[in-house]
Design a protein around this nucleic acid. Structure first.
Length: 467
RNA sequence: GGCGGGGUAGCCAAGUGGUAAGGCACGGCUCUGCAAAAGCUGUAUUCGUCGGUUCGAUUCCGACCCUCGCCUCCA
């Protein structure tokens, strides 16, 4: 079966067909973080979503090139740098490192290319130059360069491909920053912002004078440079549909005269505890906030990818606790199969893969995919309980799981070996039980529990499990 | 005001023109010296409300109610 995805351009679910005539290579660009602060859990929903898209495309056999930018020059960053008396790069590199630590904790694969905005200034200037040549961009009295939507439309291009726009009905002006009032039209947006005193030493020389790039231009410049003027997939959060992505299309198609991106995918936002995240409500979490509460990256990842990417998802602490139980159920089953399979290997069999694929093919229906996973867990547990599963059979079941897990990316629970002294206590308890000294046996059980280890009395004897 | 999502069990969340996946929580059972852990198992006559189409609608159409998001540098 073929993968189908919802394309924001057509507002419908379409068959995914790469531009590559061989149908194999896929270029994918995901709008990355603005490194002005620690990223929050809402940001990570989008990055986990992008990671799942990438992993599923790999699962489907595509040779993917995953690009994600780092926005390391922007108003907030400049303000922090100025306030802290810091060097731009020192500040942004630190935040960037924190971001990748977080991404690692969530089990996200590193994109193949991670361009920084500040390292593509010449490409951006070249792109702006092209738009100037074509008469689609103009320099305002404040020396900044703006993109003219009117001229762009005059060339037969469409502005408003991703969202139906009605400029007359739009509430204009609410958030237009004061340095943009010299634009010819409110809808126009900055390509190059002329240097102002507040920028300090954050500026670059350009044919139009010193300044810095506008927000949208970096993504156009970097994606076209690394993936070509037309590429397959562009992802981002739903808030980026307008204006960011709309403007990217305008800049890119205005300059190249060719279609920019074939498929646009947008991830919906997150609610936390039923409300929009905000610091004043106390429901604003960075990843490290949640890790500090004792949740693991894989638990957070599981919760973030437990529902469809185009639906608003309500992220709750209760959900996180539930994620822990749900993952434990999978871990338990997989661990048993591993033990049985030993070093035996086998090819995948059973219906897990087909059910998983059927769900994921339909616009990444992860909820349906998890349904397949949990049905497989129950089915495996039944087999384990009612019949002798051979090493070969266990290996075959595991082979399917491993393929699915490569997409889900939840990894496995880190196995912790109990220290020798605790194992000695466990032995002592066994001896006490044999001697019917249950008082002593129960005392040891409590002692172990106090140390964070639970005794699991299985038909094959007792085991220690970390709480 | 414009545009676009949602409303399915206590909570989260799939899905379908033919009578409701899965997860969490909860109850029962198995195992156990008792537990725990683990496993199995049960739990929505019903899918926001009211109409309509249909042999049949939660699924299609219309109206209404509620809720959320975007509307110029926020994932």
């Amino acid at each position: 079966m073929a993968l189908r995805i919802f394309n924001t351009l057509s507002r419908s679910v379409q068959d995914f067909k790469p531009l590559d005539p061989a149908g194999r290579a896929v270029g994918m660009y995901c709008c990355g973080p603005t490194v002005h602060d620690f990223a929050h859990i809402g940001n990570f929903r989008t990055f986990v979503f992008a990671d799942v898209v990438r992993r599923y495309l790999e699962f489907k056999g595509y040779a993917i090139t995953h690009v994600m930018n780092i926005t390391d020059v922007e108003d907030k960053i400049i303000r922090r740098v100025r306030e802290g008396g810091l060097k731009l790069a020192d500040f942004t590199r630190e935040r960037e490192k924190a971001f990748f630590d977080d991404l690692d904790a969530l089990g996200c694969k590193r994109p193949h290319q991670i361009p920084r905005a500040t390292e593509f200034i010449p490409e951006m200037i070249a792109l702006i130059g092209k738009l100037m040549e074509r008469g689609i961009a103009y320099q305002a009295p404040d020396k900044s360069i703006y993109f003219s939507i009117e001229k762009y439309r005059g060339c037969g291009c469409t502005y408003g491909q991703l969202q139906k726009l009605n400029f007359e009905e739009m509430r204009v002006g609410d958030r237009v920053s004061s340095d943009e009032y010299e634009k010819e039209s409110v809808a126009d947006f900055a390509l190059w912002k002329a240097r102002v005193p507040e920028d300090g030493d954050v500026f670059w020389e350009s044919p139009w004078g010193p300044g810095r790039p506008g927000w949208h231009i970096e993504c156009s410049a970097m994606s076209m440079k690394l993936l070509g003027e037309t590429f397959d997939l562009h992802l981002g959060g739903e808030d980026l549909v307008f204006p960011h992505h709309e403007d990217e299309i305008a800049q890119s198609e205005g300059a190249s005269g060719r279609p920019f991106v074939k498929y646009w995918m947008h991830g919906a936002h997150l609610l936390v505890e039923g409300k929009k995240m905000s610091k004043s409500l106390g429901n604003f979490f960075t990843l490290r906030d949640l890790l500090a509460k004792g949740f693991s990256g894989r638990e957070i990842r599981y919760l973030l990818m437990s529902s469809h990417y185009r639906e608003t998802f309500n992220f709750t602490i209760e959900g996180l606790t539930g994620a822990r139980s749900a993952l434990a159920r999978i871990d338990e089953c997989v661990a048993k199969l591993r033990e049985l399979a030993g070093t035996q290997t086998s090819s995948a069999s059973g219906e897990l893969l087909s059910r998983f694929t059927d769900s994921m093919d339909e616009d990444l229906n992860v909820a349906g995919a998890w349904g397949a996973v949990f049905d497989w867990v129950r089915d495996s547990n039944r087999k384990l309980a009612t019949s002798d599963v051979s090493a070969e059979q266990a290996a075959a079941m595991l082979a399917s799981w491993n393929q699915v897990e490569a997409v889900l990316g939840i990894g496995q629970k880190e196995e912790s070996e109990a220290p020798a002294e605790l194992l000695a206590l466990l032995e002592e308890r066994q001896a006490a039980r044999k001697a019917k000294d249950f008082k002593r046996a129960d005392a040891i059980r409590d002692e172990l529990k106090a140390k964070g280890w639970v005794i699991e009395d299985t038909p094959k004897g007792p085991r220690l499990k970390k709480l």
